[in-house]
Structure formats: structure tokens, C-alpha cells
Amino acid sequence: MEDLLVTENPLLLPLNKEKTAYDGFLCVQDRDFRIRVLLPSDLQLKRARLHCCWQLRHLLREYELIVRQRLQQSAQLSTFLLELKTIVEVCMKSRAGSFAIPPPQYYSQLISEMETLGWDKIIFLDTNIQTLKLKAEDSSGRQHTLSIKLKSKQIKYSQYWLTEEDHVTGSTQNQENIRVSQHPAEAPECSADLPVPLNLTWTPQSSLELLHSQFLLLLESLAEFWDVLDEIDQKTWILEPEKPSRSDTVRRVAIGSNVSIRVEVDPRHPKMLPECCLLGAEHGTLTPVSSPTFRMFWKLNSRHQPPTKNLVSALSVASVTHIGLGPPSQIKCAMTPAVASPSTRPASMSGSECYPPAGRASA
């Protein structure tokens, strides 16, 4: 049995003449895991103690009961180590490409940052604590989400020995590639549904609370832009996009039968003259609206008139009213305040709301 132990585990060596303590490495699929086995004086495995590196402990965390059972039932150390190798192989196959656990200091700092930020602002947190989603609300009550992905990189890392008290002592003899979190040394990847680039500043002294504060300031700078688009959405018949997101800057608005206008609002200057193009059979594909009269009306009314009314005035239209919320007999034409019949209401060109072509709406 002793020869079999040496043959199958050449890197596991006895520490004393009595052979009650073994220290070394367990080799499984070209990987070496640091282990130590302590046996009682009678060499009975029932009272043996097994210590291992944190990588092996991480792999076996769901198989601890099985390992304990095999340790209790095995007659020889060589038999137990052979079964242990089989269990480790199964774990490695089922956890191929798994994420390495960061050190405890990483979690301590991150949890401290989340507590300072407030748990009520965290709406998502993955199991590896690498991806977070924070909620934010602007001054108008609109809800927004900031997605944060903490950076990590692959490095050469020594396997570490963990004693019973989880005391760590370095061993540089056995190294492997693992991914280590770089928070807060490197800036995380941030994303949000915004019409402008998300540029947040970060230093090694920054925190999640600082990111959230910068995000709130950016939301407030865009509040007027969203106010303009919300008003357009509420008071006009939007053909495209069917489900606008907060990053969309364009609306296609129905203004007559088979006629619509494409309006693109500048997020940084929402009250300035938007880019407008008429769409319809008589206008081909796109007809820019850029006459001096149009620009003059917009400039004169932009300070004291809501965007929808200003657009109506610039186009010399009486009013823009919500279309499609009532029966056909009460649907108002987008170009006139007169009640429109089903034959004069605008035709949707979005694909999901199609009406048959009809004559032009009366001006």
C-alpha cells in the first residue's frame, strides 16, 4: 500500500518517520492542489484531518459531505486519495471556466460601499458581485438604471495554503492563471439608457456612491430634454418608435392622412429648433423643413410656448392633439382641430397600426 501511495502521489511526502503527517500536492488533470493529511497514531482514517488550499476547497464546497464519508469509510490513505482525485475531476469538469473567488478584503470594501450608497438603490447584484444595477430618479420622477460591471484581469497567482484557522502562507512553487478583481484600482464599465455618452470620472479613491451622484447630475442635465419628448409623446400620435426608450432622440409624428413629420431633438439643447423632415407620398422620402418662416416662428415662440405648440405655430397649424384614444367619430385630425372621420385620419406607417390610404386631411 505504501508503494501505491508513492506511485500515485509522488508529490505527497511524509513529514515524520511514523508517517502520521503528509504534505505536498494532489495532481489532478495537470493541476496541482496543495494538501496536508494528519493521521492519528493508530493511522485510522476515521480520525484523520484533511487540509487543502483555497482553490481545492472552493471546488469541493458542494462535496464536503461526500469527502467526509469517503474519509470515514476508506481503509487506506492511498484508497482515499484515489477517490478524492475522482471527486475533484468531477468538480473540475462541472465547473470549467468558473470564476475564482476574490479575497475577503474585496467583499468587505464592496459591501461597505453598498451600505454607504444605500441598499434601496441596488436593484440587481450577480452571484459573483461583479455586476450591479443601481436605480436613480430624476426631478420629474422618471426612473433610470445605471449598470456597473467591476473590472477584473487575469494574472499569474500562487496557490495558497489554508490551515484549519484559514491562516494563509504563501507558496510560489505552484502558479496558475486566475481572474482577480481590480476594484477600486480600475474604473468599472458603466452603461445606461441615455441619449448622450455616459462619461463618469473615476479614481482609485472613488466609490459606488460617487458614481451614483455623477449619474444623478447627468440625469438632471437631460431632464428638460425628456420633458420635451414626454410632452410630444403625450400630445401627439407617435408612429415611430413604437416603444421609445430614454436614449431615443427621434419621433415620427402623424400630421395628416399618409403624411408625417420626423422630429429629432438635440439632447443638449432641447428648446432649440429640432431637425424636421416631412414624410409622405407627395414628399418622396424626406423633405427637410427649413424655411426662414419656420425658423422665425420657432425662435419667436420657443421661450414662452411648449414644444408641441411651438411646432404647431411654426408649421402654421392650429393644434396638435392626441390621436387614436377614442372612437373614430371623436378622433381629431393632427393638422386641424376639426373632428376627423375615419377616412381622413392619418395612416400609420409603422407596420403594427396600418390603415387604408385615404384622401388628404383638410387644412
Results as ranks from 00 to 15, higher is better:
L210C: 13
L211A: 05
H212F: 10
H212M: 09
S213F: 03
Q214D: 03
Q214L: 01
Q214F: 03
F215I: 01
L216E: 07
L216G: 06
L219K: 01
L219H: 02
L219Q: 04
E220K: 09
E220F: 02
S221C: 13
L222R: 00
A223K: 08
A223V: 01
A223R: 08
E224F: 04
E224C: 06
F225D: 02
W226H: 06
D227R: 03
L229R: 03
L229V: 01
L229I: 04
L229E: 01
D230G: 09
E231S: 12
E231V: 08
I232T: 02
D233Y: 09
Q234F: 12
Q234V: 12
K235I: 06
K235D: 10
K235L: 15
T236M: 04
T236Q: 04
W237Y: 11
W237E: 11
W237C: 15
W237A: 12
I238E: 01
L239E: 07
L239R: 00
L239H: 05
E240I: 13
E242A: 13
E242L: 12
E242W: 05
E242I: 15
E242N: 07
K243M: 12
K243H: 10
P244V: 01
P244H: 02
P244M: 05
S245E: 09
S245P: 00
S245Q: 11
R246Y: 12
R246D: 05
D248L: 13
D248N: 15
D248V: 13
T249M: 12
T249L: 07
V250P: 00
R251T: 09
R251Q: 10
R251V: 12
R251M: 13
R252T: 15
R252E: 15
R252V: 15
R252W: 06
V253L: 15
A254M: 09
A254T: 07
G256S: 05
S257E: 12
S257F: 08
S257Y: 09
N258W: 07
N258K: 08
V259T: 11
S260Q: 08
S260N: 06
I261W: 02
I261K: 00
I261D: 00
I261P: 05
R262A: 11
V263G: 05
V263S: 07
E264S: 05
E264R: 05
E264M: 01
P267Y: 02
P267I: 00
R268N: 06
H269M: 06
P270K: 06
P270E: 05
M272W: 10
M272H: 14
M272N: 14
L273I: 13
L273S: 09
P274E: 04
P274L: 03
P274F: 01
P274Q: 04
E275Y: 04
E275Q: 09
E275R: 00
C277P: 01
C277S: 15
L278M: 06
L278E: 01
L279N: 08
L279I: 14
G280V: 09
A281S: 11
H283R: 10
G284M: 06
G284N: 05
T285D: 07
T285L: 08
L286S: 13
P288D: 11
V289N: 10
V289E: 11
S290F: 06
S290M: 08
S290V: 10
S291H: 13
S291Y: 10
S291A: 14
S291G: 15
S291L: 13
P292A: 14
P292I: 13
P292K: 10
P292N: 10
R295D: 10
R295G: 14
R295I: 08
M296Y: 11
M296A: 14
M296T: 14
F297V: 04
F297A: 10
F297M: 09
W298I: 07
K299F: 03
